[in-house]
Design a protein around this nucleic acid. Structure first.
Lengths: 174, 174
DNA sequence: TCAAGATAGTTTCGTTTGAAACTGTTGCAA
DNA sequence: TTGCAACAGTTTCAAACGAAACTATCTTGA
């Protein structure tokens, strides 16, 4: 059980904050650098965007999913998914058929064209990932995996819970 | 024991790619979750955006910097910095005076109002960071630090280096 | 001295984004 | 049934973004 943790000793020194040592900042910059590089990989080659790539990635196995399920698995919101799908319909990367049982849900499948792209991108993506982690030992890679998993879980928790152990007043005002 | 070791050279099987195990994706999602949460922290309380917070962070020590230097230290591009500064001028968070020696450069300093905000945000930001890494031991925190540093360096390198052994055609077309 | 050219920062333009409003469909309950 | 809330997905609107064009200043070198 976590002890009541009080912000580091003291309120005196504001403990100057160096952006380059601030975890949220570092994660943001790193993710940005990486995303940008990977995006270039398939953007220049196949003319698809990050959201489109993610959709291809989750449907690449040949599965059929609804837009909502895609949103969940790609961590994108439904608006983003909707727009990406619309683009992919235009470029004939995806197939949409109305759901049989529930006509609100549209069933989405990749076209052969998209499957081809998938087959070509996957090795590139994995190669980049391997390249990126070249500087890490196998053990370090495993550790990284672990740490990221735990951080994500924790971040999810903190995102949900607004305040500390405070009563749940949602709205701050001002 | 080292779990699944993937032979890097595999070219045969397309090695299905699970988004949830793909490092760029995971970094993106994690950074996003974290950024969003932190942003809420100071957005609701002080009405400032992420770029503005970053500028406050680098100027919080009382330093005077030019827009270009800010861009460098915050990893934002100059357009973003320019716009953030413009907003901050409106809300009296920043002070701009024309450079003496080089009149192209504007010297930027935080106003007392912004310094107050800085003093209030820093503990909140550090508390969040501490909260986030609660699930990590001290050793793991150090490891994470190390790994992120190395990954960033590597990512920077890969971002600079264009393509693999391909000819350098920049434009992909449709 | 003055004509490139480099540099600092801003503005413009078209695109992307997220939140909220909206349309259409389903499930539930009176 | 009908009425209404919940849900799936789309559209709208205003803000935010990036790339490229632009303004203003400084540097250079002929």
């Amino acid at each position: 059980m976590p002890p009541v943790r009080r912000p580091r000793s003291a309120k005196a020194a504001p403990a100057s904050l160096h952006l380059t040592r601030f975890l949220p900042y570092r994660l943001s910059v790193l993710a940005n650098t990486v995303s940008h590089t990977v995006a270039k990989l398939y953007e220049t080659r196949f003319g698809i965007t990050i959201p489109e790539w993610r959709i291809i990635a989750v449907l690449g196995g040949g599965e059929t999913l609804s837009a909502g399920e895609i949103a969940q698995r790609t961590a994108m919101d439904k608006v983003q998914v909707s727009r990406a799908i619309s683009r992919m319909l235009d470029s004939a990367l995806i197939l949409r058929e109305s759901g049989d049982a529930d006509r609100r849900k549209a069933l989405l499948t990749l076209t052969p064209k998209a499957l081809t792209i998938y087959a070509e991108i996957v090795p590139m993506a994995l190669a980049y990932e391997a390249d990126l982690t070249t500087a890490l030992s196998d053990e370090e890679r495993a550790t990284l995996d672990q740490l990221l998993t735990r951080l994500q879980a924790r971040a999810d928790g903190l995102a949900a819970a607004p305040a500390r152990d405070d009563a749940g007043d949602e709205d701050g005002g001002a």
